[in-house]
Amino acid sequence: MNQFFISFLAFVAGVLLTIQGGLNTQLGMLLKHPLLATVTAFFFSLCFALLLVLAGVKSYPSGEQIRAIPIYLWFAGGLFSVLGVSLYYYTIPKLGVSTMISLGLCGQLFFSVLAGHFGWFGLPVEPLTLKRAMGILAMGSGILLINLK
């Protein structure tokens, strides 16, 4: 796939996550608890993901491959996902969707640059350059402008 198409898919993912946040925030308000909305969202996410796996995965990992996976990788991503998603559902009705998403993106942006610079989590190292720092400042300024009342 070319870089433009992959970038477009990343943009679409952001749109879908914003829609998901808005819909599940409504569910959380109607259920009177953001964690109940999170459980519901993850349950149905599991159902949809299982359908996609059954329809599209041609081969599965061997027992040896599964045993080679560090134990924390089985649950750590899920833990952070539940915490992050629940915080989205909790804060969107209090802040508004554009404020929450922009602040969430700000957190993602700053932490991803830090994690990329040091190559944390086994990811490729992406050194912090002057151009990247200027991009962070530009996006940070945009986020501030979005949130100024």
Rank of each mutant, 00 (worst) to 15 (best):
T40L: 15
A37T: 13
Q65F: 04
P61H: 06
A68N: 12
S45H: 11
G21Y: 09
S7T: 15
I71H: 07
L9V: 08
L16N: 11
S62V: 02
I6T: 13
L23T: 12
P61I: 09
L31Q: 11
L50Y: 00
P70A: 07
A13V: 08
W74F: 15
P34V: 08
V15N: 04
L50S: 11
F42D: 07
G63M: 05
T25K: 11
R67W: 06
L16V: 14
I71V: 15
I19S: 06
S59R: 03
L27C: 07
T18N: 01
F8Y: 13
F11E: 02
L79K: 05
V53L: 08
A68E: 11
Q20D: 11
F48M: 13
E64T: 06
W74I: 14
A41Y: 07
A76H: 05
L50G: 06
F43R: 06
P34L: 12
S7N: 07
V15P: 06
T25P: 11
V57K: 13
F48L: 15
K58Q: 12
L54S: 01
I69C: 08
V12W: 09
T25M: 05
G21Q: 04
Q65P: 00
S45I: 03
A37S: 15
W74L: 13
R67S: 14
L54A: 07
L23Q: 11
V57A: 09
S62Q: 10
G21W: 00
G56N: 13
L31R: 03
P61M: 03
Y72E: 10
L79C: 03
E64A: 15
L31V: 05
L51C: 05
G56A: 02
A49Q: 11
C47S: 05
G14Q: 08
A37M: 10
M29K: 12
Q65M: 07
G63I: 12
A10P: 01
S62A: 10
F8R: 01
I19H: 02
T38V: 13
A37E: 09
L9M: 12
P34Q: 12
A10C: 09
S59G: 04
V12S: 06
K58C: 02
S59A: 14
L30C: 05
Y72S: 02
G14I: 06
L54D: 00
L52I: 09
L17G: 14
T38H: 03
F11P: 03
S7W: 03
Y60F: 15
V39W: 11
G22R: 09
F75L: 13
